[in-house]
C-alpha cells in the first residue's frame, strides 16, 4: 500500500520540472487532461500518454507514475468491463478505459511534483477562500500521516491476534473495523488539536495574512507555459484536422 501511495504523494526532487512555477505545472496538467478528453481514438490517447511519460521522465518520477498507472489499471478494467457489457462496443470501451488512466496520470503528475505549499499558493492565486485552501492543503499534507497511522493500527491489532488476511471478503471487511475506528477517532482528535494549535498561533487574527514565500513567474516559467499552450493548440488541431481516423 505504501508502495502504491508513492504514485500520488509529493516528494521533493531537484528536477527542472519540480523547479517550475506551480501554476505552470498546473497548466501543463490541465492541458494534458483536456488532451486526454479530446482524443477520439486509441492511438491519439497513446500519443498523449507518451507525452505524459516524457514529462514524467523530465520530472524524474516515471517509476512513481508507473505506480499510479498500476493502481488505476484496476479501476480502468472495471470501466472497460461495465462499458462493454452495456454498449457491446469494444473500441469505445477501450477508449474509456485508457482515457481514465490518462486523466488520472495527468492529475497525479501535478500532485507528485507540487508540494503542499505550492498547492496552497496555486489555490490562493485563484482567490479561493483562505479557510478552504487551508483545509484542503492540510488534508493533503496529512495523507502520509494518516497512512502511517493506518499501518501502526494494523500492527497493533495484528499483535492482538487479528488475522487480517484470513477468511472471505465479508470477514476481511469486518476485520477492518478494528483498524477504521481508531483511525477515524485519531483523525477527529487530531483535527481538534490542530484547530486549537492554529488558533493559539493566531490563525484568523487578520483577514489578509502575509506569506513567507511569494511565487513570481520567471522567464523560463513563462516560456514553458507558452510552449505548453502552443503544443496543446497543435495537438488539438492535429486530432481534429490532421490525423486520420484509425479505429484500433
Amino acid at each position: 500500500m505504501m508502495w502504491l501511495s508513492g504514485g500520488f504523494l509529493f516528494r521533493s526532487s531537484s528536477s527542472y520540472y519540480h523547479r517550475l512555477d506551480p501554476r505552470v505545472k498546473l497548466l501543463i496538467s490541465i492541458l494534458m487532461f483536456v488532451c486526454a478528453l479530446l482524443a477520439r481514438y486509441i492511438y491519439e490517447l497513446v500519443l498523449v500518454m507518451a507525452f505524459m511519460a516524457g514529462v514524467a521522465v523530465t520530472a524524474k518520477v516515471l517509476a512513481r507514475v508507473g505506480r499510479t498507472m498500476f493502481l488505476t489499471a484496476t479501476f480502468s478494467a472495471v470501466i472497460f468491463v461495465v462499458n462493454f457489457l452495456v454498449t457491446r462496443n469494444l473500441v469505445s470501451s477501450e477508449l474509456y478505459a485508457v482515457r481514465f488512466v490518462a486523466i488520472v496520470v495527468s492529475t497525479s503528475l501535478f500532485f507528485i511534483t507540487a508540494s503542499p505549499d505550492e498547492l496552497e499558493q496555486v489555490m490562493k492565486t485563484f482567490r479561493m477562500p483562505r479557510d478552504v485552501v487551508f483545509a484542503f492543503v492540510t488534508a493533503v499534507r496529512f495523507i502520509p500521516v494518516m497512512m502511517l497511522d493506518t499501518f501502526q493500527i494494523m500492527d497493533a491489532q495484528k499483535s492482538r491476534g487479528l488475522e487480517m488476511q484470513k477468511g472471505n471478503v465479508f470477514l476481511r471487511l469486518k476485520n477492518m473495523i478494528p483498524v477504521l475506528i481508531p483511525l477515524v477517532v485519531n483523525a477527529v482528535v487530531r483535527s481538534g488539536e490542530l484547530a486549537e494549535a492554529m488558533e493559539s498561533r493566531a490563525y484568523g487574527a487578520v483577514p489578509k495574512p502575509t506569506s513567507l514565500v511569494r511565487y513570481k513567474a520567471r522567464g523560463v516559467d513563462k516560456a514553458v507555459a507558452v510552449a505548453a499552450v502552443a503544443l496543446f493548440a497543435l495537438t488539438a488541431y492535429s486530432f481534429y484536422v490532421v490525423l486520420p481516423p484509425l479505429f484500433l
Binding site: Q152, A156, S159, R160, P178, P182, N186
Partner: peptide
C-alpha cells in the same frame, strides 16, 4: 504480547 507506545492505535 506487545504494548505499543500509543494506546490510541488499538482502542476501538
Amino acid at each position: 504480547g506487545v504494548a505499543f507506545q500509543n494506546p490510541d492505535h488499538q482502542l476501538f
